[in-house]
Design a protein around this nucleic acid. Structure first.
Lengths: 338, 338
DNA sequence: CTGAAAGCGCTAACAG
DNA sequence: CTGTTAGCGCTTTCAG
């Protein structure tokens, strides 16, 4: 591998001069500059990033935390889209992206130490268990960090307006003549609680009792979607609409409903959450709340980069608007338009 | 950040001794060793990976190449599963994973230079355009490399047995009484050609003419799946089964078919390829070829790590068995069982 | 068993 | 405008 010393020798100058050329720092005569650039090109010079980060104590790398055992990981399109947008923006900002996970115990099993050993400039917590001590330790450190739906105080966060989204979706169903709306909530997290609040508030607006049918269901799981559906079929016969916690469980739910002879949307209206491509491929198309995944990723990148570069240092929380994607899985309910 | 010098001072020894302890190299007395370890823990020492890779000229990082503009990227579950398995195994082998893409032009716009600047130990080409000069350059270099479905001579490759898979799937349909089988092929790549070959050979086995209905269709795209379906509806009325190039297009196709009043599988049997979770969530469940994504990823990781470590240096090609997932989208055809 | 010293490739004062 | 020098943190002979 050719180094700046090789180039210096070739150009009869010092390594400092060469370094300055590549860093656009100091004053170098146009001629020398040209000569060095040409020599570098000719000799196939490539800088050694490790050496650079050693002296700068800055790696120009950020980590993306993706826990493996949460079976989803990247499998769910919401996360892969966010990641993609994040990395596009990070690349534009000249950062490399390193995948890190719970398993990444490079040093003494601690995630934070792992990040420190790599001298990561920052971390994006995309999909992880916010109750895990390892993540809490990371967030409590001085490492710049931004999280998707991260519920810690004083930590930068990007997320959708879950309360509003849930409220709007409930209103949407109410406005279409549904009153007996089953709410199948996700696992008990901050955002789930927000969504339940939105659901309740929308019902309250119409003077309806708070929880017509409320039930838990794990996120992103075929099995969970099926079980929740079976419970719904067993314990409640009167609902005309069911809101699922995400598109995955909603789609699985629709299939399960068919087994009970219930057809969607004729016998039961169904809604999802997230707005993955798949919901639009199937028939009936899934009516759902579309999260702005690409903006979530892009903004997370900007927040993180700003923080790393010291441009903006105060923790911020960005909550993005969602929109309802009107598919074909909702039909007017029995109470007509109000 | 505390360094080995800090520890050395604390323990009244030299940095060399400390280094040896952490590298399990040289002979250090158990007592000294213990003392150093304790001091390190107490002082919160973390090694500086950059310094280490500077001296070792080895980064212990591998890149995963994922082109962005191929809209799919990670969106398709096949890729995210492979990536996940790859990274689990790589982590077990003590490598970090860096995401790289076409856009990653850290140095002079060349992917190879980018990798060299980062001193990557190897690269896994997971989803990229094998006709792109940047990728060819990478493969032609001395950088250890393994590719998923990579069609270059002398480059390590992991892939499914596409020829056999396609042949078996065609046989499966033939055995169930179908003869007029439409083959909707993917974009013109090596594996598409393999699959066409498999399709033809299976037909030939039964003395049937080679291409009953053969047509192109882009991979992984809702639009492409719909267009292909419309063409099928327009130009061919006699097929009783249609094989799509992947699950995405197959699912989109089923939806489009419904618009034509064709119901699956009663009026037309449909098959996909890949075996993503979504195919099992919908109704009818998609009959498809399941690729062993997790093995593909794991093996790619082992091949790459072996090559990096010099354990195994000859290029190899691993072709994995697939299996047919029997969903509900295929019904017996008009020619009865043979 | 331990330490001194050189060097990995680069940057950043500071002189000239 | 250019060069000298020191040092980033670590590994690795080679002596002792």
């Amino acid at each position: 591998m050719v180094t700046i010393y090789d180039i210096a020798r070739e150009c009869n100058c010092s390594s400092a001069t060469v370094s300055k050329v590549f860093n656009n720092t100091g004053n170098i005569s146009a001629k020398k500059r040209q000569e060095i650039l040409e020599a570098a090109e000719r000799m196939g010079y490539v800088p050694n990033i490790a050496a650079r980060s050693l002296v700068n104590s800055k790696s120009n790398m950020v980590g993306v935390l993706l826990f493996v055992d949460k079976a989803l990981g990247l499998r769910h399109e919401l996360f892969s889209e966010i990641l993609n947008a994040f990395r596009v923006q990070m690349e534009a900002r000249q950062y490399e992206i390193l995948l890190i996970s719970e398993e990444a115990k490079l040093w003494q099993g601690s995630l934070l130490r792992h990040c420190n050993a790599l001298r990561l400039d920052g971390v994006f917590c995309l999909s992880c268990d916010y109750d895990a001590p390892a993540v809490k330790e990371l967030a409590a450190s001085s490492l710049p960090l931004v999280g998707f739906e991260i519920p810690y105080e004083g930590v930068s966060c990007v997320e959708s307006k879950n309360y509003e989204a849930s409220k709007n979706l409930t209103r949407y169903l109410l406005a279409r003549g549904h009153r007996d709306i089953a709410f199948i909530a996700g696992t008990d997290t901050f955002i789930t609680r927000e969504r339940i609040r939105g659901y309740r508030d929308a019902l309250a607006e119409q003077g309806l009792p708070p929880d017509r049918y409320l039930q838990r269901c794990g996120f992103f799981s075929k099995d969970e979607g099926e079980i929740a559906t079976r419970l719904l079929m067993t314990y409640d016969k009167g609902c005309t609409a069911a809101m699922y916690p995400d598109d995955f469980t909603a789609i699985a739910g629709m299939r399960e409903l068919k087994k009970y002879g219930i057809s969607v949307p004729e016998d039961l209206s169904v809604t999802g959450f997230d707005g993955i491509t798949l919901g639009r491929l199937i028939s009936p198309q899934l009516t759902t709340v579309k999260q702005n995944a690409s903006e979530l990723g892009r903004i997370a990148a900007d927040i993180l980069a700003d923080r790393v570069e010291g441009t903006d240092t105060s923790p911020c929380s960005v909550r993005l608007e969602t929109e309802i994607f009107e598919g074909e899985s909702v039909l007017p309910g029995p109470y007509g338009k109000e």
